[in-house]
């Protein structure tokens, strides 16, 4: 990827006014789809993604069922109106791959052996895409799974870091993704210290790789706090209410 214009100004501000270590604004709302067993809506910068979880439930088709564990199924899909030019609603190869890596990012967090012969379906619908939609999708999906009451080892938090103007920055946005130098999405389970998704496209030296990876992990930790807050909000009310009750 060759870069044509400068994406960081002299004050170190990025195209959307952020500094190198700043996350876009993240907002997660839990329980937004009434019919689902668990759901979440995430706004991650301009990303708007709704995730619905159904299950554990009976597996259809039946032959897919596993005798010793639950089948996890995942669909990442972009709405036709989510992008600049209309996206064909049929699943693209990109979406097939993202569905796969997303499922593999979530699976280590789930105690699938607790639900033999059943299936858990995770539907991730990108209503508006703004770069980093797979990370936002994983983040929301993990909250939706928790909301569905699925037994979990940890939450999965995801965030990307990358290279822009030869500098390592946190949480790449759409412009930086398209015009910048490298993009590295990471999903991480903070308590178990396990990386469950790691991808890279673009060139990074050894030093840049280490910096980028560490920065993405830091980002995941920030996202983790937002996830916890969102779940607390739904099940225990807001923090202030909690404090009032304690008094």
């Amino acid at each position: 990827m060759s870069q044509t214009r400068s994406l960081i100004d002299k004050q170190g501000r990025r195209t959307d006014g952020r500094t190198a270590d700043q996350l876009r604004e993240v907002k997660i709302t839990v329980g937004v789809v009434k019919n689902a067993d668990g759901s979440a809506f995430i706004e991650f910068g301009k990303n708007k993604i709704v995730v619905a979880v159904y299950g554990p439930r009976e597996v259809h088709p039946k032959h897919m069922a596993q005798p010793d564990r639950c089948v996890l199924r995942c669909r990442y899909h972009m709405s036709p109106f989510s992008t600049d030019t209309r996206k064909n609603p049929a699943p693209s190869r990109r979406e097939v791959e993202i569905s796969k890596v997303m499922r593999e990012a979530l699976e280590p967090a789930l105690l699938l052996e607790d639900y033999p012969r059943a299936a858990i379906d995770v539907y991730v619908e990108v209503l508006q895409a703004d770069g980093g939609s797979r990370c936002a999708g994983i983040t929301a999906a993990s909250v939706a799974l928790a909301d569905a009451g699925i037994n979990m080892r940890d939450l999965v938090s995801a965030c990307a870091a990358g290279k822009v103007d030869d500098k390592i920055v946190l949480d790449i946005n759409d412009t930086e993704d398209k015009e910048g130098g490298a993009d590295m999405p990471v999903a991480y389970m903070p308590h178990l210290d396990e990386v469950t998704l790691l991808q890279l496209d673009g060139i990074l030296t050894k030093e840049q790789f280490n910096e980028c990876f560490d920065k993405a992990i830091e980002g995941c930790r920030m996202v983790y706090e937002v996830q916890k807050q969102a779940l607390m909000q739904k099940y225990f009310g807001s923090e202030t209410e909690l404090k009032e009750e304690a008094q």
């Binding site: 890596v101 593999e104 590295m184 790691l198 991808q199 890279l200 673009g202 060139i203 030296t205 790789f209």
Partner: peptide
Amino acid sequence: EYAAIQKG
């Protein structure tokens, strides 16, 4: 230098 990574 690193050019691509995929965890699977």
